[in-house]
Computed example of a mutant assay.
Amino acid sequence: MSPGPLLRRLWRVPAVAVWIACGLVMAGLAALLTRLVPAQTQAIRSRLSQVWMSGLVSLLPLRVRCLGALPRQPSLWLSNHVSWVDIVLLGRLAPLHFLSKAEVAAWPVIGWLAKGAGTLFIQRGTGAATSLNDQLSGMLAAGHSLMIFPEGTTTAGDRVRTFHGRLLGCAVETGAPVQPVAIAYRRCGERDSVAPFINDDEFTAHLWRLLGSERIDVEIHLLPPLRAGSAPRNQLAREARASVIQVLGLEDGADTNASPSLSRRAA
């Protein structure tokens, strides 16, 4: 092992460990406040989550550039998905409720942090899509923004998979804007290979590699919002995916290595 990764981990590993412990304390505090002052719980939980995620980003080897404007009203955010780091990067920008597979709730540490941040857990294959859509619609109507990764899985950043529209019905029903987001990880102008969390990767092993990494450039594009109106949800999904592919410089999901397109500002 070269001395670079070792020296970087010497301070990053203990710093991240301490900050994760702080996150667990914050999650416990949020759970306590749910019982004591339920009317104010959501605002406090959102603020604590943003503070914690911002702190974690500062400890990771990331240089972040955000292009575009944050939505001014409750919105349904749709983003391509490369890594668990996406959640931290986007969650620090605005109060967001994330959707995650139900298994994450049982993960040590990560599950508790996710619950503390107000994550909604989806039980796949239960046939409860209608009930979930009602729940999502209720949250949008109540003024809460939602974050969905409509690919349903992560990629290496070399393509954008199909955006599934089954969960976009909540935007159609409530009239909430759809906020497309494009995220890219680069190193020296090329696609980074450390940040992607794919296949059978394990969280602690991936975090270990990430903490030994050199600086990774991240670009987050907040693209022009789409108005749901009466548009079919699958059409909204296709339009959102097309805008993400365009700004990432990809075509039909293939990696074009066209790094100059990553610096175009979202209009």
Rank of each mutant, 00 (worst) to 15 (best):
A142L: 04
I110Q: 00
A31D: 10
Q123F: 03
R187E: 09
V172S: 04
A102S: 13
P3R: 12
P61F: 12
I216T: 15
W52R: 06
V82H: 02
G55Y: 08
L90F: 04
V25N: 05
S213W: 00
A94R: 11
V57A: 12
S259W: 13
P196Q: 11
G68W: 09
G169A: 10
L36W: 14
A141L: 07
V85N: 01
T130L: 12
A94D: 06
L6K: 08
V88Y: 04
A31I: 01
R227M: 11
G28P: 12
F203G: 08
L60N: 11
G212Y: 13
D255E: 13
V16G: 05
R161V: 01
V244A: 06
L70M: 13
P180L: 07
A69I: 00
R238G: 05
E251T: 13
A231W: 08
L248W: 01
R65D: 15
I110M: 03
L140Q: 02
K101S: 04
R265N: 14
A266C: 13
R227N: 09
T119L: 00
A129D: 15
H221R: 06
R159E: 03
P61T: 14
S54A: 12
E202K: 15
R9A: 11
R227K: 10
A156R: 09
L67H: 12
I87T: 13
T154C: 10
G152E: 01
Y185V: 14
G212W: 10
S261G: 00
A231R: 14
L262P: 05
P95M: 00
